[in-house]
Amino acid sequence: SPVALPPFFMRGSIIQLADGELKRVEDLKTEDFIQSAEISSELKIDSSTVERIDSGQSPNAVVIQFSVGELKAQVCVEVLVEYPFFVFGQGWSSCCPDRTTQLFELSCAKLCVGDVCVSLTLRSLR
């Protein structure tokens, strides 16, 4: 089932970076994620390229296929159309930016095939 949209995507939500700095969700920059992951001992930023966007099980859901990391592992996620992803160098983007803005007052670009999103993996599973 699609992942419901959590409250921290609401405009004005306070986000704590890895160094303790507080920022509003709408003010986050690509560098904030990169620098936070550099500090983290467990988490690593990966580049996840959008390969496909298909309809989901319900009318307001989409299945997004990503190519993750250097190994280009194929990973599919089903989310609501308003679910925002952070695109490198661009910022928040969703499959239905109008709906994201309507529900969460978060300005969004349209998420498209070829966009490179910020994602996380564990630094090492060993």
Partner: peptide
């Protein structure tokens, strides 16, 4: 006011590890 950790905003896309 609730404060959320930065990593909660980012999807955890874990490829299957093959080693």
């Amino acid at each position: 006011v609730p404060v959320f950790p930065w990593h909660s905003l980012v999807p955890f896309l874990a490829p299957t590890q093959s080693d």
